[in-house]
Design a protein around this nucleic acid. Structure first.
Lengths: 230, 230
DNA sequence: GACGAAAACGAACGTTCGTGCTATTATCCG
DNA sequence: CGGATAATAGCACGAACGTTCGTTTTCGTC
């Protein structure tokens, strides 16, 4: 039916709008205006504001899986796939898959204080994502790529924190170095727990992945900004 | 005057409300109700919604400085003070200095996509905070506590990311291990760049600070939750 | 091409939003 | 104590909010 196409179009717009203005900032009237349709016509697709928000979260989740998780699953399991997930995530913000940065980072901080179905949906999506991250770490460990002492939940926590940190530095502070910083931190963290491979590879860095190698000595302070944009 | 006291009371409430519902969610009518005063009476103190938001950000900044930065400045400069700042920050979320978690984490992600004076005020506050962090790192480096290769802005980025990560895990996911995880990550990160002290101290860990020592071997996966609360 | 169903519309509902005014009450100071 | 000033309340406004309802348009099928 045509209804499905319209609905998808609405959610597409809603998801982008929400990543900029927040989920609560996505107003039915505004959404209708931007899509040149009537409030009531749009409303009929969902039946309530909350239902629209839930559908928006689901649409965002699907887009996220498609744009971040799926592509990374192409990499061979273990350390390469873990690295692929990391750079895929950073790329997803860089490429502006959502207009206002990571939808879920925004939604998480917006709804973390309230009760309700929307909050639960966001939390569930984040649980799913964290589980994906943990699993990737666990696989790398099982493959013998990472030290057996590694705690997957701990490492996943740290990686996710760095992602959010990059999203913050990029979107609020317009820090041009945001992604470099995150990449460097990730490389640094992982190089400490990576295990030498049996065959040929060099020693403590069997797979390098996040672009260019770096050390701790470059640049000194400040970090300033790409002011003006958007 | 009495007006100042009233105003302070309003902002006190506004700041807490904003940390839970978001700055945009703080409505003049709602705020007036909760304080048992009239909309217009409250409104007169600020003259516009935006002015109220700006005052709220400023009030939050003051509270943050008072509750997080000031106490940590009591610690001796260098590595101890850096550690003091880190545990002070985690404590500030744990103690619920703001009812809904870190005000600035929430505000940053809420306003990072919009233009305007409020966004600028939030960004300025975060710039100030990041500068404080960087300075603490720089001092630790200058005191010879941290390796001279350390990039203060890079390390500040990583620490701040871990703070936000802890705030996220605690407030959205109700992860009981949130603070432990952040502490562990911080210790792990700093122990890698800490420098042995000339005098007596032991070698690569001259000051231990974040509570209990730990290693990477404890616990395995999951991380689950303190569901139900608030 | 006609017909039933699905989709979109337009107008209106009661509320709440931010913001003006004008009165009334507290508070401060000489 | 009284008069000036600051603080608060009351009321009204236009706009936007989510939602409802009855009507009209569009679509898919025979």
């Amino acid at each position: 039916m045509k209804g499905q196409r319209t609905r998808a179009g609405i959610l597409d717009r809603a998801v982008n709008l929400a990543s900029v203005e927040g989920l609560e900032g996505v107003t039915i009237g505004r959404l209708a205006d931007e899509l040149s349709m009537s409030k009531s016509g749009l409303f009929a697709h969902f039946g309530s504001k909350e239902e629209l928000q839930l559908a928006t979260v689901e649409a965002a989740r699907d887009r996220f899986v498609e744009e971040v998780v799926r592509p990374a699953l192409g990499a061979p399991r273990g350390y390469p796939r873990l690295m692929a997930i990391c750079s895929s995530w950073l790329d997803y913000v860089r490429r502006e898959v959502f207009a206002g940065g990571c939808f879920f980072a925004a939604a998480s901080f917006e709804f973390d204080g309230r009760p309700g179905a929307v909050r639960d949906a966001i939390a569930a999506a984040m649980d799913e994502w964290m589980a994906t991250l943990e699993k990737a770490v666990l696989m790398a460990k099982d493959e013998g790529h990472l030290a057996p002492t590694i705690d997957p939940a701990q490492l996943a926590f740290e990686l996710n924190a760095l992602f959010f940190g990059a999203n913050f530095a990029w979107n609020l502070r317009h820090d041009e170095k945001a992604f470099d910083r995150a990449e460097r931190a990730i490389e640094q963290r992982l190089s400490a727990v990576v295990v030498a491979q049996k065959g040929r590879t060099r020693a403590t860095r069997p797979h390098r992945s996040l672009a260019h190698a770096r050390d701790d000595t470059t640049a000194t302070s400040s970090s300033r900004t790409r002011r003006g944009r958007r």
